[in-house]
């Protein structure tokens, strides 16, 4: 069963720029996919369409059974509760502690205090930050902040984790750490992970499923592979 199915999708922005041309692909449950390509290749647009920050101009996108293209604004939260999203710039709330930042997800969806506490601690343990739950984001390194963001994304046990250049602001060692954390989540929780990146080293080292985009078109979709192939 495909968890994500993209059919004949085109995306043209209001300013006339076409970001995606006739995209067709499907992603299986539990896979770890790298979406790669240079700047302007359409990988960010692709990720944004999956969590419906952008709507496709034509075509259909099914994520976990929801037709994203037809989803009404007021119902978007139903989709987002099935997803975790991680960004290049972390997007943490600076006035909240690590614990509060992760708990924010649970509070936003109306979970009880006990459930929130249990899941937040579990998520923070998974990313290896249990010792720093009372720190504020500006007291952490970039890699640690990104791990907090990952904990926030997975705390609600989503089926899919979308990562838009999560290692873009990090040095190679920290980047590798982040990818290892994602791989751990993929293995232990069975979460499907889709990560957009242009970091060749990581892609070549991990040898995972690869989707290569160029100028908005799908060039390759490999079960296992590196950047150069």
């Amino acid at each position: 069963m495909d968890l994500i199915r993209v059919k004949n999708v085109n995306k043209q922005y209001k300013n006339g720029v076409t970001a995606i041309y006739d995209l067709n692909l499907s992603i299986k449950k539990g896979s770890f996919v790298f979406v790669i390509g240079g700047s302007g290749s359409g990988k960010s647009t692709f990720i944004k369409m999956l969590y419906r920050e952008e709507k496709p101009s034509s075509g259909e996108i099914f994520v976990g059974g929801i037709n994203v293209a037809k989803l009404r604004n007021s119902k978007v939260y139903k989709l987002r509760r099935k997803l975790g999203i991680v960004f290049q710039d972390y997007r943490l709330l600076p006035k909240l502690t690590v614990y509060e930042n992760v708990a924010f997800t649970m509070e936003s969806i109306g979970a009880t205090k006990a459930e929130t506490r249990r899941k937040v601690l579990k998520a923070l343990e998974l990313v290896g930050l249990k010792a720093k739950i009372h720190n504020y984001p500006d007291q952490l390194s970039g890699g640690e902040q990104q791990r907090v963001a990952i904990a926030r994304a997975i705390v609600n046990e989503p089926r899919i984790l979308l990562c838009d250049e999560p290692t873009g602001n990090l040095d190679p060692d920290r980047s590798m750490e982040i990818v290892k954390v994602l791989e751990e989540i993929n293995k232990t929780c069975g979460t499907t992970i889709i990560m957009a990146t242009h970091d060749k080293e990581i892609v070549n080292k991990m040898q995972k499923e690869v989707v290569l985009l160029k100028d908005g078109r799908l060039i390759k979709h490999l079960e296992k592979g590196g950047y150069e192939e």
Binding site: V76, R81, I85
Partner: peptide, 16 residues
Amino acid sequence: KREISIMRLVGASNFT
């Protein structure tokens, strides 16, 4: 604004 956009991203309903 940032707080609201993050709430939207993590799946808070508009009502919340």
